[in-house]
Amino acid sequence: METIRGIVPPYLLRHIAGLEEDRFATAAEAARRALSERPVHGGHAHPSVRPPVVDAELRRKVHDAENGTDLPGRLVRGEGDPATGDVAADEAYDGFGATDALFRQQYGRTSMDDAGLTLLGTVHYGVAYDNAFWDGTQMVFGDGDGEIFGRFTASLSVIGHELTHGLIEYTAGLVYRDQSGALNESIADVFGALVEQHAAGQTADEASWLIGVGLFTDEVEGEALRSMAAPGTAYDDDVLGKDPQPGHMDDFVETTQDNGGVHLNSGIPNKAFHLVATELGGHAWEVAGRIWYETLLGDLSPRATFEQFAQATVAVAENHDAADVVRGAWQAVGVWTNSTSPSSSSG
C-alpha cells in the first residue's frame, strides 16, 4: 500500500500555513487544516499524537531513466529483488538501505515521512548529467560527464544527502533559499556524512567529514566536493578553481546565484556540526546527530535563519547535556559573538 499524499506537496502547505499576512489568512487556514488532516505529518505535531504505524517496512524502488529525462523511468529493482548487476542501480538500492538504517536504528524513524513511504530513485538520468537531486518525490542521479564527474551514486554521502532533502521536506520544510536554504543544504550534508559514518562504524575522530568522495574523476585536483571539517579545502583545481565554501560568518557569501548561495554558506553550519561532533567525541550520530534530528522535528520556522536554528539546537541540547558545547560551536563559526550568545537556560 502506498502512503496517501495530497496533491499539494507538504512543504508548500507548510509554507502557506506559515504566512501571517491578513490577505493570506484564508489560504493559510486551509493549509493548516490540510496539514492537520494529513495522515503523514511533519515535526510540528507532538510525537505522542502520531497515528500508529501499520506498515512501515523498508521499501525501495530503483528505476533506470536510460539516459532520458522522463521520471521515474523503468523499474529495475524493487524491495528484496536480487542485485541487477548495474553498478549505479545497485549502489542506489544499497545506499537507500544504509540511509534508512541510520534513521530507523538510531532515531526510530520509518522512512522520510515516518510512515513507511517507499524510497524512490532513478539512475542514469540524462546524458553525461553532472548532478543528483531530490525532485519533491524521488531521488535522481546522473552518470556524470566522465571528465570532471563520474556517477553520482558512487558516494554514500551523496545518497544520504538527497534522501535527507526528502526528510527535511516532511519535517521542518526549510525554504530552499538564502539562510534557510543553506541550512537545508547543511542538514543534508550532516546526515549524508552520518549515514557514511554509521555504515562504516566510524567515530567522529575517525571520519573524513568529506562530502562526495569518489565523485571527481582522476583528472580533478580534489578529494571531494565539500569538507565539513575544513570548508573551502575540498578541491583546488586548474579548471574548477578552489572550493569556495566559507566556514565562518566573516566570509558569508551574499549572492543571488545558487538560490542565494545555499551550497556555499552551508559550510558555516557544517563546520558548527563538525565542532559539536568532535568535541563530544564517539559516534557522531548518537548525540550530535540526535540534537540536529530533534531540532528538525521541533518548532522551527521554514524560513529559519542560522541564528534561529542555532538557538533551537541549543534548546534541544539542554536535554542532552550538551548545550555548552553546541553554544560554543555556533560562537566559533561567528553565528554568535560572546555577547549575543543566549545564556544557559538550565539554571
Partner: peptide, 12 residues
Amino acid sequence: VIRTGGFAGLRR
C-alpha cells in the same frame, strides 16, 4: 548562460 547550484554548487 550562467549555471549555478546543483549538488556540487559549481558555477559554469
